[in-house]
Amino acid sequence: MTAKPVALALALTLSAGAATAQCGGDFGSFVAGLQQEAVSRGHDAAAAQRFFSGVRHDPKVIQADRAQGVFQLDFTTFARRLISANRMQTGQQKARQFADTFARIERDYGIAPGVLLAFWAFETDYGAFQGDFNTLNALVTLSHDCRRPELFRPQVFAALELYEKGDFEPATTTGAWAGEIGMVQMLPEDILTNGVDGDGDGHVSLKTSAPDALMSGGNMLRSLGWRAGEPWLQEVSVPEGLDWTKTGLDHEMTAAEWQALGVQPRSGQMMRPDLPASVLLPQGRHGPAFLAYPNYRVYFEWNQSFVYVLTAAYFATRLEGAPVFDPGNPDPGLSGDQMEVLQQKLVARGHDVGDVDGILGEKTREAVQKVQIELGLPADAWPTPDLLNRL
Results as ranks from 00 to 15, higher is better:
residue 2 T to P: 10
residue 3 A to S: 15
residue 3 A to L: 10
residue 8 L to R: 12
residue 9 A to F: 08
residue 11 A to E: 12
residue 13 T to S: 15
residue 16 A to W: 04
residue 18 A to T: 07
residue 19 A to D: 15
residue 19 A to V: 10
residue 27 F to P: 04
residue 28 G to R: 07
residue 29 S to C: 10
residue 29 S to V: 13
residue 31 V to N: 03
residue 37 E to T: 13
residue 41 R to L: 06
residue 42 G to R: 09
residue 45 A to D: 06
residue 45 A to R: 11
residue 45 A to V: 11
residue 48 A to T: 09
residue 53 S to I: 11
residue 61 V to K: 09
residue 66 R to A: 11
residue 67 A to R: 15
residue 67 A to C: 10
residue 68 Q to I: 11
residue 70 V to T: 10
residue 71 F to W: 06
residue 72 Q to M: 14
residue 72 Q to N: 07
residue 78 F to H: 07
residue 78 F to V: 03
residue 81 R to E: 11
residue 82 L to M: 15
residue 82 L to I: 11
residue 83 I to N: 00
residue 84 S to E: 05
residue 91 G to M: 01
residue 94 K to C: 11
residue 100 D to L: 10
residue 108 D to P: 06
residue 110 G to P: 02
residue 111 I to C: 08
residue 115 V to G: 00
residue 117 L to C: 11
residue 120 W to C: 02
residue 123 E to L: 05
residue 133 F to I: 12
residue 136 L to T: 05
residue 136 L to K: 03
residue 139 L to V: 08
residue 140 V to Y: 02
residue 141 T to G: 10
residue 141 T to C: 11
residue 146 C to V: 03
residue 154 P to Y: 04
residue 163 Y to I: 06
residue 167 D to R: 11
residue 170 P to H: 12
residue 172 T to K: 10
residue 172 T to P: 05
residue 175 G to N: 06
residue 176 A to S: 15
residue 177 W to K: 08
residue 178 A to R: 06
residue 178 A to W: 01
residue 182 G to H: 00
residue 185 Q to D: 05
residue 188 P to C: 08
residue 200 G to N: 12
residue 210 A to H: 00
residue 210 A to N: 07
residue 211 P to E: 04
residue 211 P to W: 04
residue 214 L to K: 01
residue 220 M to D: 04
residue 220 M to H: 15
residue 220 M to T: 14
residue 226 W to C: 02
residue 227 R to N: 12
residue 233 L to A: 00
residue 236 V to C: 04
residue 241 G to Q: 13
residue 245 T to G: 07
residue 246 K to L: 10
residue 246 K to W: 06
residue 255 A to Y: 06
residue 257 E to S: 14
residue 261 L to M: 14
residue 262 G to Q: 06
residue 266 R to M: 12
residue 266 R to T: 11
residue 267 S to G: 15
residue 269 Q to W: 14
residue 270 M to R: 09
residue 273 P to R: 02
residue 275 L to Q: 09
residue 276 P to Q: 05
residue 279 V to H: 02
residue 286 H to Q: 15
residue 286 H to D: 14
residue 287 G to I: 00
residue 288 P to G: 03
residue 294 P to H: 04
residue 296 Y to L: 13
residue 297 R to M: 05
residue 299 Y to S: 08
residue 307 V to R: 08
residue 314 Y to T: 15
residue 320 E to W: 03
residue 323 P to R: 06
residue 323 P to V: 01
residue 324 V to W: 13
residue 329 N to F: 15
residue 329 N to D: 13
residue 329 N to E: 13
residue 336 G to I: 00
residue 338 Q to Y: 01
residue 338 Q to D: 10
residue 341 V to K: 04
residue 342 L to D: 03
residue 344 Q to K: 11
residue 346 L to T: 05
residue 350 G to P: 05
residue 351 H to M: 08
residue 351 H to T: 00
residue 353 V to P: 09
residue 354 G to Q: 01
residue 354 G to N: 03
residue 363 K to S: 00
residue 371 V to W: 03
residue 377 L to K: 07
residue 377 L to N: 00
residue 380 D to Y: 05
residue 380 D to M: 00
residue 383 P to T: 02
residue 383 P to G: 04
residue 385 P to A: 01
residue 387 L to C: 03
residue 389 N to Y: 12
